[in-house]
Design a protein around this nucleic acid. Structure first.
Length: 134
DNA sequence: CGGATTTGACCTGCGC
DNA sequence: GCGCAGGTCAAATCCG
């Protein structure tokens, strides 16, 4: 699992459609228009070198879907935070060029604390390269 | 028993 | 107007 720090490549498969069902899974039927006054949904992309897609960052995730991407022969996994009031979404995708590279995209912010050791989370962050779309 | 996971189907949006 | 793509949700199932 040890990974060199020079294995991180730049993000090229970021498909920003700018279209999502809801910002945080709130109002979706009554609102014909979305809250344009609200802040945009923060999107953070992490590129990690791992052999498994299950990157435990310290939060609890529940897989809610899996779909294949065109640029990738590997399917993309969609995860959602199982916390109450925490509508954070996460998606994991593998690079078609390097299956050893896993791209984890976080959407939203956590309103609760991690159940795991922060030290461990910090260690994981050490392996991640942060790319903020905003 | 509860929680989590899986696959399929369905819906929406956009393009042509 | 229809088709395609992508994304989400739901039900069933399995595991602990």
């Amino acid at each position: 699992m040890e990974v060199p720090a020079s294995d991180i490549t730049n993000v090229d498969s970021l498909q920003t459609k700018g279209l999502l069902g809801s910002d945080d899974g709130e109002v979706k039927s009554s609102g014909k228009k979305k809250g344009e006054k609200k802040i945009r949904k923060p999107r953070y992309a992490f590129q990690t070198r791992s052999q498994v897609d299950i990157l435990d960052d310290g939060y609890r995730w529940r897989k809610y879907g899996q779909k294949a991407v065109k640029n990738n022969r590997f399917p993309r996994s969609y995860y959602r935070c199982t916390h109450q009031g925490c509508n954070v979404k996460k998606q994991v995708q593998r690079l078609s060029k390097d299956e050893g590279i896993v791209v984890t995209t976080y959407e939203g912010m956590h309103s609760h604390q991690i159940e795991k050791s922060t030290d461990n989370f910090e260690h994981i962050l050490s392996q991640m390269q942060v790319y903020a779309s905003f």
